[in-house]
């Protein structure tokens, strides 16, 4: 649709209106706001958008979104390489980071198993997780690129307390148990049906510290 809109303001408004929570009116207001801002703003905005497309990729170790390889969390030598927290999405990772309670590392699945939508294990970053666990301690490509080494002892399954999140945690716990690691699930304090991303920091911090063994 945007290809056919030639007027630059209308074109921008159409593109902005595709953002969640942005209606047509808001999109138009934003377009005019950008137009009226100093020239550098529009240039910087467009460069930031291009950088998303060019520079952001998945960290080869944890599948977090990053512009550097490996990502900052995997490179940070102060993070505890014995703890690995498995989350569904990057916003979930950020929500846990905001609590400042967790000092281990992450693995992002980029989704959850869905019995209703037929989303099976092959659609999630589970292969990458297994590869990471089998490299445990050994030097890998990402180590060479500057990632701190890790010797994982505990895997915390921090998927959402929804049917999809529970299914994912059940699947992973069965898959990972034979590896002899400690497998834990974040506590039930989170309301069932909730999304980690929306949980308040206190609840989420409590859920992390009150995790139980599977």
């Amino acid at each position: 649709m945007s290809e056919r809109v030639h007027d630059p303001i209308a074109r921008l408004a159409v593109l902005l209106s595709r953002l969640p929570g942005v209606g047509e009116k808001t999109a138009q207001r934003l377009a005019f706001h950008i137009l009226e801002s100093p020239k550098e703003y529009a240039r910087e905005l467009s460069q930031a958008l291009l950088a998303l497309e060019h520079d952001v990729r998945l960290c080869s170790r944890c599948c977090n979104l990053t512009a550097q390889e490996p990502c900052a969390l995997c490179r940070d030598p102060l993070r505890d390489g014995r703890l690995l927290c498995v989350v569904e999405t990057v916003p979930d990772l950020l929500a846990i980071e905001r609590t400042r309670e967790f000092r281990g590392r992450y693995h992002v699945l980029h989704g959850a198993l869905s019995p209703l939508d037929g989303v099976g294990p092959d659609r999630l970053k589970i292969k990458e997780l297994l590869a990471r666990l089998s490299h445990d301690g050994a030097r890998t490509e990402s180590d060479a690129a500057g990632a701190s080494s890790e010797k994982i002892e505990e895997i915390i399954l921090a998927t959402d307390p929804t049917v999809e999140g529970e299914a994912t945690a059940l699947y992973l716990s069965r898959l990972l148990k034979p590896l002899g690691l400690r497998i834990t699930r974040i506590a039930q304090g989170l309301p069932m049906g909730g999304d980690l991303e929306y949980a308040d920091q206190v609840t989420l911090a409590r859920a992390m510290s009150g995790r139980r063994e599977l």
């Binding site: 209703l116 939508d117 037929g118 299914a167 699947y171």
Partner: peptide, 11 residues
């Protein structure tokens, strides 16, 4: 084919 029947197989 129900989407969920593939899921049964996969898990």
């Amino acid at each position: 084919t129900p989407r969920s029947s593939a899921f049964l197989e996969q898990v």
